[in-house]
C-alpha cells in the first residue's frame, strides 16, 4: 500500500464533501421523490392497504429509505462521470498518488450524502406519525444494513459512471433500482400478488432487506431474513466492486 494512502484519501474525501456541501440541492432533490411517495401512500392509498400493522407509515418506512438510497447513488455516478470526462481523473492519475483513493473518495462521499438524505426522510416521517420501539442496538443494526446497501449500490453506480458515454446514460441506470422496491414487500404484503410476481418479489434482495429493517424497527425477531439480506448486500457489493475496479483500471 502506498505510504500516503490515508493522507491522499483525506484530500479526496475533503474534496467531494465540499461538492456536497456546495450543492445541497442534490440532497433535497434526492429526498423529494421518496417523501412524495411517503405522502401519497400514507394519505391516499394507505387506507385501503391491509398490512396488519397499526400505522401504515411504520410498514412503509424501510422501502422508502431504500428508494431514497437508490435515487441518491445516481449522483455518485454523475460525479464520477464528470471527473472522468473533464480530465480530473487524468490529472490525478498522472500524479504520484495512491490511485484507488480517487475512487474511494467518491464512495465514502456517497455514504455520507445518502446518510444525510435518509436522516431527512426519517425526520419527515416522524412528523407524519412514524414511531419505532427499537432500541439503540436495533437502530445501529438498521444503520448498518442501510450503509451496506448504499455501498453495494454505490459500486454499481461506479460501474455506470465510469463506463457511461453521456450524462443521459449515467442517470438512466438508476431507474430500475428505484422501481425494484415496488415489486417487493415494501408497499404491500406479497401474499396479495399473483404467484409469478409473488415468487419474484419474495426472492429478490429488496424484500429480505425491507423485512429485516421492518423487524428491527418494530422490535420483532429478525429470524433468517437478516442473513439473507446481508448476503445479498455483501454479494452485490463484491461483484460490483470487482467490475467497477475492472472498468476503472481498464482506462490505462
Amino acid at each position: 500500500m502506498n505510504k500516503h494512502f490515508f493522507s491522499d484519501m483525506g484530500v479526496m474525501v475533503g474534496r467531494s464533501m465540499r461538492h456536497i456541501s456546495r450543492s445541497m440541492d442534490t440532497i433535497i432533490t434526492v429526498t423529494i421523490t421518496p417523501i412524495a411517495l411517503l405522502l401519497l401512500f400514507v394519505y391516499v392509498f394507505g387506507g385501503a392497504i391491509q398490512t396488519g400493522t397499526d400505522h401504515y407509515v411504520n410498514y412503509l418506512m424501510p422501502g422508502i429509505l431504500l428508494i431514497a438510497v437508490a435515487s441518491g447513488i445516481s449522483y455518485t455516478a454523475y460525479r464520477l462521470f464528470l471527473d472522468k470526462s473533464k480530465g480530473i481523473f487524468e490529472r490525478f492519475h498522472s500524479m504520484p498518488i495512491a490511485r484507488s483513493t480517487v475512487l474511494w473518495g467518491h464512495v465514502l462521499t456517497s455514504l455520507v450524502s445518502n446518510a444525510l438524505s435518509v436522516i431527512i426522510i426519517i425526520f419527515v416521517a416522524l412528523i407524519m406519525g412514524f414511531r419505532s420501539s427499537a432500541g439503540v442496538l436495533s437502530w445501529l443494526a438498521v444503520a448498518g444494513i442501510i450503509a451496506l446497501f448504499t455501498l453495494a449500490l454505490t459500486w454499481m453506480a461506479a460501474i455506470a459512471g465510469l463506463s457511461a458515454k453521456s450524462v443521459d446514460g449515467v442517470s438512466a441506470f438508476s431507474y430500475p433500482l428505484i422501481f425494484l422496491p415496488f415489486i417487493s414487500s415494501a408497499f404491500v404484503p406479497t401474499e396479495s400478488m399473483p404467484w409469478a410476481v409473488r415468487a419474484f418479489a419474495e426472492n429478490q434482495p429488496v424484500t429480505s432487506i425491507v423485512e429485516s429493517i421492518r423487524a428491527l424497527l418494530s422490535n420483532q425477531p429478525v429470524g433468517n431474513e437478516i442473513w439473507i439480506a446481508l448476503a445479498w448486500c455483501v454479494g452485490i457489493m463484491i461483484v460490483a466492486y470487482f467490475f467497477a475496479m475492472r472498468v476503472y483500471k481498464a482506462r490505462r
Partner: peptide, 21 residues
Amino acid sequence: SENVRKSISLTGQFAAVDEVL
C-alpha cells in the same frame, strides 16, 4: 510509472480544474 509520475506534470487538453472548488 511511479517514478515517472514523480518527475512530471500533465496539463491536459481541457483545463482539468475542479469547478466547484
